[in-house]
Design a protein around this nucleic acid. Sequence first.
RNA 1: GGUCCUGUGGCCGAGUGGUCAGGCAGCGGAUUGCAAAUCCGUCUACCCCGGUUCGAAUCCGGGCAGGACCUCCA
Length: 471
Amino acid sequence: MALTFYNTLTNRKEEFAPVEPGTVRMYNCGPTVYMFPHIGNFRAFMLADLLRRYFEYKGLEVTQVMNITDVGHLTDDADEGEDKLEEAARKEKKDPWQIAAFYTDAFFEDIDALNIRRATHYPRATEHVEEMIETVKRLLENGHAYRSGDCVYYDVTSFPEYGKLSGNTLDRLRAGARLDVHPDKRDPHDFALWITDPNHIMKWDSPWGVGYPGWHLECSTMTQKYLGDTIDIHTGGEDNIFPHHECEIAQAEGATGKPFVNYWMHVRHLFVEGEKMSKSLGNFYTLRDLLDRGLDPMAIRYTLLASHYRQPMNFTFDAVEAAAGAVERLNEFIRNMRAKSGEGEDPRVGELIDTMKADFEREMDDDLNIAPALAHLFEFIRQVYKLDVGAADARRCAEAVREIDAVLGVLTDEGAEGGDALDAEIEALIEERQQARAERDYARADAIRDDLAARGIILKDTPEGVRWERK
RNA sequence: GGUCCUGUGGCCGAGUGGUCAGGCAGCGGAUUGCAAAUCCGUCUACCCCGGUUCGAAUCCGGGCAGGACCUCCA
């Protein structure tokens, strides 16, 4: 089956055909660095990571770009309110650049903790203002933009396809009009490209005066700089469909006259314990909050991964606990396979591996249908256990699971036993316990086991001998 | 008001007409000195009310509940 994605632009699943065969050019909407990213943000970042990993698993070469929005959009609407970065700066008594630097670092720490692979580029909005100004110039030349008052606005009526992504066409928008007409705008749905405001803390020179760029501008400009005029995939949260992505299309296609993005993919929001995440409900969690509660980052990763991205997700602490069990089952499988010592090879093993991979890929090819894909993985594990394979087969099976984990990114055992040495005293205790067991002095043996457990060393007696792991 | 989505067992979460999802947790058994790991068996489902059908979680109608977007929250 061919790789297929649900495309927000066409509202249906479509076979994926990259512009340049064998390569993927993907842009993912990234963080605005004025606070710690929350668990919902990570759902979006996880979709980006899953796509990237799956493409690479399939042998495609991926260029992945994620923006760092370090110039604030406004807290209110297009023309009023306070810049988010400036607001955070005021509250934390820092300047906006310090805020941006701090939360950018925090963002990278968090995605590392979740084993999210680094994108190819992380362009900062503040470092691309010059290019954004160029885009505005082109739009003015093309007749898609106009100056009014101190600002430059995009003329939505100049772009007949406005609304093709979100369904919010101009006639529909006008029908449900909730906006007061801004005096400088020709149409209430025109949006700002350049806001002249010398009082803004973060400001740049431009042909239209000192000020700052409109929010939608950075993504389309940076996308085109790093990936070209027409890219394969653009991802983001569902709330970005309108107006953000709609406006990006208007800008990019208005500037180049070429299609901007072939496949738009959007993540649905997540709920926490069945309720919308919000600060007032007290269920607004950053990754740090969750880690402080003692949750395992790989369990959090698995939880975010295991539900389909186009399905609203209910993030619960019970679910993370269950995910921890699932991750442990995978890790335990690798350890058990490593410990196998039997001779002989079973012809059924190769078949199991081939079937599992084929089933996994078939499901993932279908718009990243990960739940049944995971079911096939677990079914494989059960079948392998039942065969009681020898050492050579065990290595192949473990390898197959690792290959799948290149996509999932949840295994943590890589170093495991032997990776870090036990100190001599503990080695001696394990040896002493083995001696005690041999002499049927189980009281002594259990006392040693309890003692080691208290030090974080868990012992397991297996048919292949004693094994230990750190808790 | 306009457009759209969701409602599955203790918890997550697949499944779009008829056969087992899967994970975690529970219970019983095998194995083990006892554990661990593993295997086998097993319980708890399809929001409500109608309708179509030989047969519906799955299709249709009507409710109820929750949610998204309609100018900057992923």
